[in-house]
């Protein structure tokens, strides 16, 4: 019965993947991809990775939004020649076949760090091992990953025309928002914020955490902007910039404090691990929410003259 459910999920996943690759219209393909993301989130639940499922559902929606917004850019371009496509198809089939063979030949019992990851949890006072991996054992990855996101935003800002780069980005639809959207943008954000804070707070002990919460807050912010309830912020604004770098800066500063107590970079003092981690998560959530929203909005732009 459970295997049947898995089989249905896998079949749906592959059909949606094929559809979004092969659909004629770019918009259909982007919508197909959003459906793919939702099914993928269910697959992650089936794989026992609820944290990943939440992240996939939240971030996948933003990715879908980006792709959907770019469908007008799909320019018809020349396909590679038929023999070349056949050769590429052969190569890709070889890769897929090889991977499938390796999946079937995987070692049994599988190697795992699960036991090693659980052992220090009590000392850290954390209940969710994924949070422990992200903010203790492999905190350097997480720190650098937030730097990656900051760098992506700077890269996107650098694409602006010279005169507009410190100005506000264009918000699609904000000039003539429809009344129902304005209603939604008034009703939903408070609920969304409560849910985000809940997800963030339980993240230390149960599935949830900063990425999921930040994506939710970013989505609420985008909704408010797209409904025209608030103007898009100017990208040169110092307070906005401070929000963007504040989280990573605090994370880095606390990491460097680790050199003094307890004596290692990105190590947390004994007994204080949980408060420090929660503090970092709150700061990172704020910064990531702003970052993700700004990334979706894009570089500064001039409003087209009416």
């Amino acid at each position: 019965m459970k295997l049947a459910l898995d089989a249905v999920l896998v079949a749906t996943l592959l059909v949606l993947a094929l559809f979004s690759l092969a659909a004629r219209q770019a918009r259909a393909s982007a919508i197909g991809f959003m459906g793919f993301g939702l099914v993928l989130a269910l697959v992650w639940v089936r794989l026992g990775a609820v944290d990943v499922a939440l992240t996939e559902a939240a971030v996948g929606a933003l990715t879908g939004l980006l792709l959907l917004g770019a469908t007008s850019l799909a320019t018809p371009a020349a396909q590679p020649s038929r023999p070349l496509r056949l050769a590429l198809a052969g190569l890709c089939a070889l890769v897929a076949g090889g991977l499938a063979f390796l999946v079937l030949e995987a070692p049994d019992p599988a190697p795992s760090l699960a036991a090693a990851a659980v052992e220090p949890l009590a000392a850290l006072d954390l209940g969710n091992p994924v949070t422990a991996v992200l903010l203790a054992y492999r905190a350097l990855d997480t720190l650098l990953e937030t730097v990656v996101v900051v760098l992506a935003l700077i890269g996107i800002w650098s694409l602006a025309p010279d005169a507009d780069w410190r100005g506000a980005p264009m918000v699609p639809g904000a000039d003539a928002p429809s009344p129902p959207l304005r209603l939604l943008a008034r009703l939903l954000p408070p609920v969304g914020l409560v849910v985000a804070v809940h997800i963030l707070w339980i993240g230390a002990d149960a599935p949830g955490g900063k990425f999921q919460a930040a994506t939710l807050i970013a989505a609420m912010g985008l909704l408010v902007l797209m409904a025209g309830l608030a103007p898009a912020p100017k990208l040169g604004n110092t307070r906005l910039r401070a929000l963007v770098v504040g989280g990573p800066a605090l994370f880095l500063a606390l990491g460097l404090l680790g050199f003094l107590v307890p004596g290692s970079f990105l190590a947390w003092p004994e007994g204080l691990a949980k408060p420090v981690i929660v503090l970092i998560e709150v700061a990172l959530t704020t910064s990531l929410a702003v970052l993700l929203a700004l990334i979706v909005l894009g570089p500064g732009a001039r409003r087209p003259r009416a």
Partner: peptide, 13 residues
Amino acid sequence: LIALLSGAIAGQL
């Protein structure tokens, strides 16, 4: 309730 709200408004849009 949230699905109700967003469904109704998405339908409108």
